[in-house]
């Protein structure tokens, strides 16, 4: 299982692995927002937590189809499904690899982009914490969506349609936590809810995703 994690990390960081694309997308989205809403500092400060959360969510969504589609194309998924490790673990490990290559870098980049959006001082801590604890849920929910559509030729758009509604609770609690933090309000409750969603997603969704993959390989 460590081998699978290392392989996925290695593939993501090699040429054509897409590592960095998500980050670049996150950067561009964040830069585009002031062009859309105007440069006024107060407005930007108010919407910064939401923009950064939505941006991170979309950047995470972009790379989801790589989780299983490439392995499906080259036959690795068939072989992994007949390998001695359970498919549920394969899903969990691949989702973890996805988080390490997208969610974690996004979390680390977010404070820097928050400077561009004029995020108030106390918001930085809560933004980073909420992203760090919430983006794993995005990867695991996304892995489930990717598993549902792995057998489809052009499943990318459909996958977005399936995954985005599932992202809503994560987004609500995550952005709310960051927003309350930025407004110097108590942000503990949404953070706890966010952690609950992440833990639930990590615990349950690999089973659903593995079931979907088995159906798709049939």
């Amino acid at each position: 299982m460590i081998a699978l994690l290392l392989r996925d990390l290695r593939l993501a960081t090699r040429a054509g692995g897409g590592f960095g694309l998500g980050l670049a997308f996150f950067l561009i989205v964040t830069v585009l927002v002031p062009f859309g809403v105007g440069p006024e500092g107060g407005t930007l400060a108010r919407i910064a937590p939401g923009i950064l959360w939505v941006g991170a969510l979309l950047a995470s969504l972009l790379s989801l189809d790589r989780i299983f589609a490439l392995d499906h194309e080259d036959g690795s998924l068939d072989l992994l499904a007949t390998a001695p490790i359970p498919l549920e673990s394969v899903v969990a490990v691949k989702a973890l690899a996805h988080w390490l290559t997208t969610g974690l870098p996004l979390t680390l980049a977010a404070p820097m982009l928050a400077v561009l959006l004029n995020l108030p001082g106390p918001g930085f801590f809560w933004l980073t914490v909420s992203l760090a604890l919430g983006t794993p849920a995005l990867s695991y929910i996304g892995a489930f969506g990717a598993a549902l559509t792995v057998g489809l030729k052009r499943g990318g758009l459909l996958m977005s349609l399936l995954v985005l509604p599932l992202y809503i609770p994560t987004l609500i609690y995550g952005a709310d936590c960051a927003r309350r933090g930025a407004a110097a309000l108590a942000a503990g409750t949404p953070l706890l809810m966010l952690v609950a969603i992440t833990l639930g997603a990590v615990a349950i969704l690999p089973f659903a995703a593995a079931a979907a993959i088995r159906v798709n390989l049939r």
Binding site: P165, L166, I168, P169, I172, Y173, D176, T189, M193, I204
Partner: peptide, 13 residues
């Protein structure tokens, strides 16, 4: 499950 979660999240939000 997620629709139910959203229902409560939206109330909270």
């Amino acid at each position: 499950i997620f629709a139910l979660l959203s229902r409560y999240a939206v109330n909270f939000w």
